[in-house]
Design a protein around this nucleic acid. Structure first.
Lengths: 76, 76
DNA sequence: TCATTTTCCCCCGCATACAGGGAATAACAA
DNA sequence: TTGTTATTCCCTGTATGCGGGGGAAAATGA
């Protein structure tokens, strides 16, 4: 059951697979339980640093795609 | 010249390649000029929705990597 | 060089994300 | 079913991100 929200779905999936509750994930990430709930319910008003804390606990790395990606990677 | 901040470097690179000033990028994205400046200077306290607005203007798509990535993609 | 543009970094006031508490509801297991 | 746990979604006070202004500093170009 996907919400359609890319980030929310990723986080929910990874949390469930990790066997963590929202509360436990929040504590491990050092954020409040509401913040995890808001992330999973698709709110995009969260602070980036808090998102990163959650992603780190779940072992998720962000990457990017763009027409300039190769140029960026080759740039010294 | 890289700041070492992943996101900041990506955004700066793409903005420069697009020939935009911080001010112009901010206006196109519908955010304040300070927000763009903070993004490029590595502040991770920005709101996710504002980051997304900027990435969209620069034609940057976020992706993720994780040990569970395949399982996630195959999951119905 | 000098003029122009851009970036940096402060300010202010307002809006809102945040943590934590708590209660209703939902999900789950026995 | 019944008991247990998890999630959803209120609330409140505090912290802070935000846009916009502005001036100094740096970069750009002629």
């Amino acid at each position: 059951m996907r919400s359609g929200n890319w980030l929310a779905d990723i986080i929910l999936f990874h949390r469930k697979r990790s066997g963590l509750t929202q509360q436990e994930l929040a504590e491990l990430a050092g954020v409040g339980k509401n913040m995890v709930y808001e992330l999973e319910s698709g709110k995009q008003s969260v602070r980036l640093e808090n998102l990163f804390k959650v992603l780190q606990v779940l072992n998720i790395e962000l990457d990017f795609q763009s027409p300039l990606r190769e140029a960026f990677l080759e740039d010294v």
